[in-house]
Design a protein around this nucleic acid. Structure first.
Lengths: 152, 152
DNA sequence: CTCGTCCATGCGAAATTATTGCGCCTGGGC
DNA sequence: GCCCAGGCGCAATAATTTCGCATGGACGAG
């Protein structure tokens, strides 16, 4: 993992659509060298996959919301069950188990406020093990991404 | 925007690494038809870009945190300044302007708890316009992604 | 100091994938 | 019923990726 690896991973995080030739020019390597490095990232599990980023606003109405959740029981099994439900719900974009008074931060995407509320009901209100949850409806997305900062 | 478009966009959101041939098989179109549709998504701004998803844990230590922020002044200019700072800070992965007692939800990625704290100090504590902020350190990432649910 | 090994590289051929022109078909408007 | 616009598949072409091979530097053992 040298500096070129960091530059490459940074470039890929930002835009995975570039050709090996372009990447090679940007980091000063031949296409084949770039290709071999990328294959190594995949094999090592550093590079998980490539995904398309869509513009929610161009896909008909989409409402995002951040939900803060506190559970009643904190056993391993309860956590597992909750996490499982989050994973299998397509409208759950992200879910983090966090420290502090709240147990989970969940980010939801739904077609309308109404459906967002219904989703909240279904996921949290009807879950006996959810003590309390608070929905923060998103007005505006200032920044989005999954970019991990790489040591510069 | 027919059903095939939805299927295609869904597939691309999940994995943009597939060939046009594979996509064609999955939706029942020829590679060139798939290619033309994808070109259209790009032109229409539906498909913004493709990015590589990295595994944070394989990149040395990474700490994620969710930060809830309330501002003092709510003028347009104050909001703009805050948003601008979030956008230009690489460790800020996501930032949402939300309804309710909190004004912003920010997701940070830093190499350690310590640096996460320092980042919080720099971004929020030394900002006179931040009234209060609360950091929820992430223990575990249950689910991650930017996937927009498409009507099924 | 020199030899041998291990990697990573660049080059270039070969294979795969993406792009584009063309003719065809379908469905809606008139 | 006719015409046009739009989308399709096919096939040729262009671009990109993949892979074998030879080279050269780093490093350790002899």
């Amino acid at each position: 993992m040298d500096e070129i690896d960091h530059r490459l991973l940074g470039l890929l995080q930002d835009d995975a659509g570039r050709t090996l030739f372009e990447l090679g020019e940007l980091v000063g390597l031949s296409p084949s060298a770039v290709q071999r490095r990328i294959a190594r990232y995949r094999a090592d599990g550093v590079l998980l996959k490539e995904i398309a980023v869509l513009d929610p606003r161009r896909l008909g109405p989409v409402v995002l919301a951040t939900v803060l959740v506190t559970l009643v029981h904190e056993t391993f099994e309860h956590h597992r069950a909750f996490a499982e439900r989050m994973r299998e719900t397509p409208q759950v974009q992200q879910c983090y188990n966090v420290a502090g008074p709240w147990d989970y931060v969940v980010i939801l995407a739904a077609p309308s406020i109404r459906e967002c509320g219904m989703l909240g009901n279904r996921l949290f209100k009807s879950d006996d093990n959810v003590q309390r949850y608070e929905t923060l409806v998103v007005f505006d997305t200032v920044k989005t991404g999954l970019t991990i900062p790489l040591s510069v």
